[in-house]
Design a protein around this nucleic acid. Structure first.
Length: 419
RNA sequence: GUGGGCGUGGCUCAAUGGUUAGAGCACUGGACUGUGGCUCCAGGUGUUGGGGGUUCGAGUCCCCUCGUCCACCCCA
């Protein structure tokens, strides 16, 4: 280490390196694959937006907006924010590009980094990655069920097990105020027993009291009104229809009436997928309906539903369950002498043009040390070539796993490795 | 923002307050210049995260600070 201070990545952000990057690539590939089977197409909105987009949609009193956003002024004095989540920018993009004129449902997905200024912990970073999915134009619960089963299918395809799928309905702008009133009424006599956080929640966002993990608060909320008992007729029907579709699809859901969403824009269906193998940050995917948001962004009334999955949490699960595929070169070309070196370079090029991973030696090392390097790289085959081989136009191949070797004509090398 | 644990070569870790801070792994080369894995040998400028203090003497004790991990909080 030098005496100069070395640079390091900012707190809460990370470099993603091999071999872990291969899991990331797999997750992205499988997701793209599954989404296209359901007709979802990729879009790539920008990472920065005007700050208002987030404050208006996520809600002024949420933690995200109050203290977690990366916000700065650009050179023209506009307030700009690095996106803390994907749905609000998506809706801006949807309205701006008049995507509602496409035949409905319009189905899109996107992936990329999100930013929140939080204290890092297991499964929580300041720059974290989401794959998000949005379906618009359909209010029928069939699309809710489709989205959920697509999510389940994706997680299954990735080989994940032991996940819990929680669903709930938090009603609409018609029924939620009644529920809120009932909650406040129920809790008003118990407020003194609450933890300080819940006392604060009582004022700001009483629904969040349902989420508290403090034992006293859990006791005090026994028998509290349930959101599902306050749904209006339309929301009730929507939720019931969704549940019967899920049963039809043999979807292993659990109703969690205490599940509340932190963002203001949600309506009706909300859901969350959790794993017990993660730490406190146990959600691997979550989402819900946001039937009012497009209109609020100046578009036509457009029902919508979406979810996002947290890539690093999926990767975390796969790291412990997956046997990592070891990537290794197929061929190492070991040469002795200048003419063999040139010949070897030509062979390497031909093989590489066919997409075969070939490594060569970059200095005139002894054959021993070249073989040792091939071994350390876990190369499958070594091609050995010296003056004799060049003049006879034949070279030796050796399979490192069992040490077998043989001879092959130089112009047959392509066929040998092409299969 | 709050609380707790942990900071010693690239990694995992040793070192009662007392010589020149060690070992394993990894890495590079050699022994073995046409045959890898095994073995042996050689190769490290470590400000013991940083700063201050206590002490004859600090990796070790105290304070501050930074980083990291976990949890609270919060969250698609």
């Amino acid at each position: 280490m030098s005496s100069a201070e070395r640079y390091r990545a900012l707190r809460g952000v990370q470099d993603i390196l091999p071999p872990e990057i291969f899991i990331w690539q797999k997750v992205e590939e499988v997701a793209k694959d599954v989404f296209s089977a359901y007709g979802f197409q990729e879009i790539r909105p920008p990472i920065i937006e005007v700050t208002d987009i987030f404050t208006r949609s996520i809600g002024e009193n949420t933690d995200i907006v109050e203290k977690e956003m990366y916000t700065f002024s650009d050179k023209a004095g506009r307030s700009i924010t690095l996106r803390p989540e994907g749905t609000a920018p998506f809706v801006r993009c949807y309205v701006q590009n008049c995507l509602y004129n496409l035949p409905s449902p319009q189905k899109f997905f996107y992936s990329g980094p999100m930013f929140r200024y939080e204290r890092p912990q297991k499964g929580r970073f300041r720059q974290f990655y989401h794959i998000g999915v949005e379906a618009l134009g359909i209010s029928d619960p069939k699309i809710d069920a489709e989205i959920l089963s697509m999510l389940r299918f994706l997680l299954e395809r990735l080989g994940l097990e032991g996940l819990t799928f929680e669903v709930n309905s938090i009603g609409c702008e018609k029924c939620r105020p009644d529920y809120r009133k009932a909650l406040l009424n129920f809790f008003s006599g118990r407020i003194n027993g609450f933890c300080p956080d819940c006392k604060r929640r009582y004022e700001l966002n009483p629904l969040r009291i349902l989420d508290c993990k403090v034992k006293e608060c859990i006791k005090l909320r026994v028998g509290s009104p349930r959101v599902t008992d306050f749904l209006c007729k339309d929301c009730r029907e929507h939720f019931d229809a969704l549940l019967s579709l899920l049963r039809l699809l043999d979807f292993p859901y659990v109703i969690n009436p205490d599940m509340v969403r932190g963002l203001d824009y949600y309506t009706r269906t909300t859901f969350e997928v959790t794993s017990k193998q993660l730490g406190a940050q146990n959600a691997v995917a979550a989402g819900g309906r946001y039937d009012r948001l497009v209109e609020e962004f100046g578009g036509p009334p457009t029902p919508a539903i979406g979810f996002a999955i947290g890539i690093e949490r999926i990767v975390e699960l796969l790291k412990s369950s997956d046997k990592l595929e070891i990537l290794a070169p197929k061929v190492f070309i070991a040469t002795i002498g200048a003419s063999a070196e040139k010949e070897g370079l030509l062979i390497a090029n031909k093989l590489r043009e066919r997409g075969i991973w070939v490594e060569i030696s970059y200095a005139a090392h002894s054959l021993r040390s070249q073989l040792r390097r091939a071994d350390r790289l876990s190369a499958k085959y070594v091609l050995i070539m010296g003056d004799d081989e060049v003049s006879s136009r034949k070279l030796k191949w050796k399979r490192l796993s069992d040490g077998t070797q043989g001879e092959i004509a130089i112009d047959k090398v392509l066929e040998f490795f092409n299969k």
